[in-house]
Nucleic acid binder design. Structure first.
Lengths: 239, 239
DNA sequence: CCCCTTTATAGTCGCAATGACTATAAGCCT
DNA sequence: AGGCTTATAGTCATTGCGACTATAAAGGGG
């Protein structure tokens, strides 16, 4: 970066790509848009767009998130920069460097088609088939990152509405990790971690359907979990 | 990213910035270059440079790493993408988006001045004063990331030469975290983690200086630590 | 040459965290 | 009413880990 001038560099297009994740029932879903143009016309892709001259990648990502989901207020949503994808051939048309983000939503709204008139919808993570460009890789990286951060941060509450039950919180872990957790142990662990969740004071209870009504909790003030909530170790792991 | 054309976007300059970290004795050091030109002439900055048209950010970072350190073979060094810094005003001259990397070196070579004829040297992390641009932030983020990854990955061996003693490995943790660790407990934990380190078969021993010679180990095949090696919790942490 | 310092390694003890499990409570459904 | 479902309370044994003691193997200074 010493002594460069305006003409010493090659200009790049800079975009953001978003892996917008949410839980629908017991399945992880991702927001995808259908491409209308070549390349990859007819393929599904992650939503995204260009970073404009006066905004940062974070600002651009939040703007795109609002546009694609149709949500009015996205200020409270968790948005996390994943990494930047810059392989020279990742877009066949031109040199595009993309800053990827993961966004976590509690209650998924029905998406409306973006300004580009492309179709947008939620697809289950497992059946999000081959995506355009390197978006399969980005989506997998998003999943890995979120799964890892569940272990040692309070990220799971970002998937939950403002007030939630411990069962819903456990469902987040089980869905993202793809493993079942013991309910009493999960409960003990969460409640023993200071600042993870705090009970809603009024004896508020929510009855969603069957079974005994559960107590409601809010996200606490802590951001990290000490000690972490480790996922059960995989069986076929190298010894 | 639907239906853009060549002229629908604003071109950006894309650079890489490197936080090259190493251990000298018992202190964490970072490789810095002195800027010769405005802005921030005379200030220290992280090494870096432009991404060229035919290379990815990772390739550019490894190329810059070789140039700045003078090392011939940087293929075995750990290079990790941190995040991308894209605030519109982070460079007063023009719009520059920078992909930041952390690089970990075992034995620090004496740096030679880069092609820009700027001065380059190792500085202790703690006395790496105010840096140019947003490089203070980048350096702090690199330190945070490395400290966190020591907990749940085998990253510490990236600071060590091919063969090392457990005392040297412990020194990595103590230096990066800034805390003292109990030696027998550290040893027990490391040896109990399958794949973290493996003993050098020949009864090889290294006598660096005083004390009983220590057994030598190599980095194992594992990449993650299960369960993690947690750093001692800070005292004044919110309850 | 002996002792002292330094570092490595072995092992002990007790508490805290956790996995596996049982039991009870409180709602809905038929 | 009885059974199903989910929430919550608690038990028990094992593991992990922090704190600590002890022994071994080197070098250095009188």
């Amino acid at each position: 970066m010493q002594g460069y001038n305006k003409y010493a560099y090659e200009p790049f297009a800079v975009t953001v790509d978003l892996a917008v994740l949410t839980l629908r029932g017991a399945a992880l879903h991702v927001l995808l848009v259908e491409r209308g143009q070549e390349p990859y016309a007819g393929h599904w892709a992650l939503p995204g767009g260009f970073v404009e001259p006066d905004e940062s990648a974070e600002t651009a990502a939040r703007r795109e998130l609002a546009e694609e989901t149709g949500l009015v207020d996205v200020s409270g949503l968790h948005l996390e920069q994943l990494r930047t994808y810059s392989e020279p051939d990742r877009d066949p048309r031109m040199r595009v460097v993309s800053v990827a983000f993961a966004a976590l939503l509690p209650d998924p709204p029905e998406p409306h088609a973006g300004s580009d008139a492309a179709q947008a919808r939620w697809l289950p993570y497992d059946s999000a088939g081959p995506l355009a460009f390197d978006h399969d890789r980005i989506l997998a990286d998003a999943h890995d990152r979120v799964g890892a951060k569940l272990e040692y941060t309070c990220l799971a509450t970002a998937f939950c509405p403002p007030e939630f039950t411990l069962g819903e919180l456990q469902q987040v872990y089980e869905t993202v990790w793809g493993t079942a957790l013991d309910r009493p142990n999960f409960r003990r662990k969460v409640l023993a971690t200071p600042g993870f969740v705090e009970p809603v004071p009024g004896a508020a209870r929510l009855t969603g359907g069957r079974g005994k009504p559960a107590a409601l909790y809010r996200a606490g003030t802590a951001t990290t979990l000490h000690p972490p909530l480790l996922r059960p170790p995989r069986e076929g792991r190298p010894v």
